[in-house]
């Protein structure tokens, strides 16, 4: 295939699926949450973190709109040497790892329909010292658009790595 056959990059627009960086931070040492607020004007989100570590062994999870009600349903395949699957119909968060550890190597969560007044679907893949392999997909049952996305840990962050939020314009 010649170079002339490579499609030109999209310039974006209302109907594009181009993700743009909304915000990126290094978690503050000793903090237990990283929360992006005042999200608006997007229809899709991609929530990523890379090379973050925890001060002590713990797990991480995601919540939206500070909602800790039982509104998160998902299936998960996770493990290190052996993969196991599980289903959670009414969780108060989207759990990342089933095991625990200090190294949260990285994960990517893609959330669709965040500006809709109905359920939002999400898919995720990642890796940590708790679960070398992780695949998650599910639904966040909420009518309100997502304006806040939070990464929580049962431990505290060590002040390294990156947590970033990307979005596709509405």
């Amino acid at each position: 295939m010649g170079a002339s056959q490579i499609p030109a990059a999209s310039t974006g627009g209302a109907t594009s699926d181009n993700y743009v960086l909304i915000s990126s931070v290094t978690p503050t040492a000793a903090a237990s949450t990283v929360s992006f607020t005042s999200i608006s004007g997007y229809r899709k989100l991609m929530f990523r973190w890379l090379d973050t570590t925890l001060a002590t062994s713990g797990s991480v999870n995601i919540t939206f709109n500070s909602d800790t009600g039982a509104n998160y349903a998902y299936g998960k395949v996770a493990g290190t040497s052996t993969m196991s699957n599980s289903q959670t119909q009414k969780d108060t968060k989207i759990a990342l790892n089933t095991g625990t550890g200090t190294s949260q190597l990285g994960a990517t969560y893609i959330i669709d329909g965040i500006n809709n007044s109905g359920p939002k679907t999400f898919q995720a893949f990642g890796s940590s010292s708790g679960d070398t392999n992780l695949l998650v997909n599910g639904v966040y049952y909420a009518s309100a658009p997502i304006t806040t996305a939070t990464l929580n840990t049962t431990s505290t962050f060590s002040g390294v790595g990156t947590v970033a939020l990307y979005g596709v314009a509405a």
Partner: peptide, 30 residues
């Protein structure tokens, strides 16, 4: 032990420290 989080307002870029409840929502074993 007091817990805190960081909050990033993506519209303004402002980063603030917020105090969190002391309870950790660790789920009980199923």
């Amino acid at each position: 032990m007091s817990r805190f989080g960081m909050e990033i307002n993506v519209e303004t870029g402002e980063v603030t420290r917020v105090e969190l409840p002391a309870v950790v929502d660790e789920a009980p074993a199923e």
